[in-house]
Simulated assay, not measured.
Amino acid sequence: MQTAGKFIVIEGLEGAGKSSAVALVKQHIESAGHSLVTTREPGGTPMAEAIRACVKQQWQDETVTVEAELLLMYAARAQLMHNVIIPALKQGQWVLGDRHDMSSQAYQGGGRMIDSSMLDALRQITLKDFRPDFTLYLDVEPAEGLKRARGRGELDRIEVEHLDFFVRTRERYLSLAKADLKCVIINTMQSIELVQQDISAALTQYLEA
């Protein structure tokens, strides 16, 4: 798909520092003179935000199946793609996403161990050949990421999963990131100053390419 704008995505586990990275990347892109739209997944439209709430909350006396969770993630993504991301890119705006399809591949594919054929089918229906122009994957050790997340307050339904879930998710994230030539891995186990330096360097290199 040919678009006038660019789609930049921030990925990572809970506690990896995505919010801070989004703010830093936003500053860089706008300083370079580009009009920018920011999004998050799941969410980003009224319907997608309702789906986000549905996915995140605890359901008393009801088990959320892995299949239902997966389908809801792609339903929210379809709404966001059709109503926000594609229109903005076609108008020449840049889009900065807090998560995108790599999250589903990692969390549902790795963490939930859903067969890749199901993920591939949903991705083809929802995204076809659309992929981010550039991705920053913020890598954090799961135990440390969860510790940071707990420090922010109450955890949601996914954040309270066992550590093994996040270990599998991180393993899939790293596999995907290393195989993606348009993805840069940022080590967020180092100091905030070094993380910011690495993000700025990676983004500057992308913008000047």
Rank of each mutant, 00 (worst) to 15 (best):
M1T: 12
Q2H: 12
T3C: 12
K6Y: 01
F7A: 10
I10T: 08
E11A: 04
G12C: 05
L13H: 03
G15F: 00
G15S: 11
S19I: 13
S20V: 09
V22W: 06
Q27W: 05
I29M: 03
A32I: 02
G33Y: 06
G33Q: 11
H34I: 07
V37F: 02
V37Q: 00
T38V: 11
R40Y: 06
P42Y: 01
G43I: 08
P46E: 07
M47Q: 05
A48C: 11
E49C: 08
A50G: 11
C54M: 14
Q57H: 04
D61N: 12
T63G: 00
T63Y: 01
T63A: 12
E67A: 07
A68T: 15
A68Q: 10
L71N: 03
L72R: 02
L72V: 07
Y74A: 01
A75C: 05
R77T: 13
A78I: 11
L80P: 05
L80M: 08
M81E: 11
N83Q: 15
V84I: 12
I85S: 06
P87T: 06
L89V: 12
V95K: 08
V95A: 03
V95T: 07
L96S: 08
L96A: 09
L96P: 00
G97S: 15
D98Y: 03
D98R: 15
R99S: 01
R99G: 02
R99N: 01
Q105S: 07
G110W: 03
G110F: 02
G111C: 05
I114D: 01
D115H: 07
D115Y: 04
M118Q: 10
L119C: 05
R123F: 03
R123K: 09
I125M: 14
D129E: 14
R131M: 08
P132L: 10
L138C: 10
L138E: 04
V140N: 05
V140T: 09
E141A: 13
L146A: 07
A149E: 02
R150I: 02
G151V: 11
G151K: 12
G153E: 10
E154L: 15
R157A: 14
I158W: 02
E161D: 04
H162T: 10
H162S: 10
L163A: 10
F165Q: 10
F165V: 13
F166D: 00
V167Q: 14
R168G: 02
R168H: 10
R172S: 01
S175D: 04
S175T: 09
L176T: 00
K178E: 11
L181E: 12
K182L: 13
C183S: 10
I185M: 14
Q190C: 11
S191F: 09
E193Y: 07
I199D: 03
A202V: 09
Q205H: 15
Y206W: 14
E208G: 14
E208D: 15
E208Y: 15
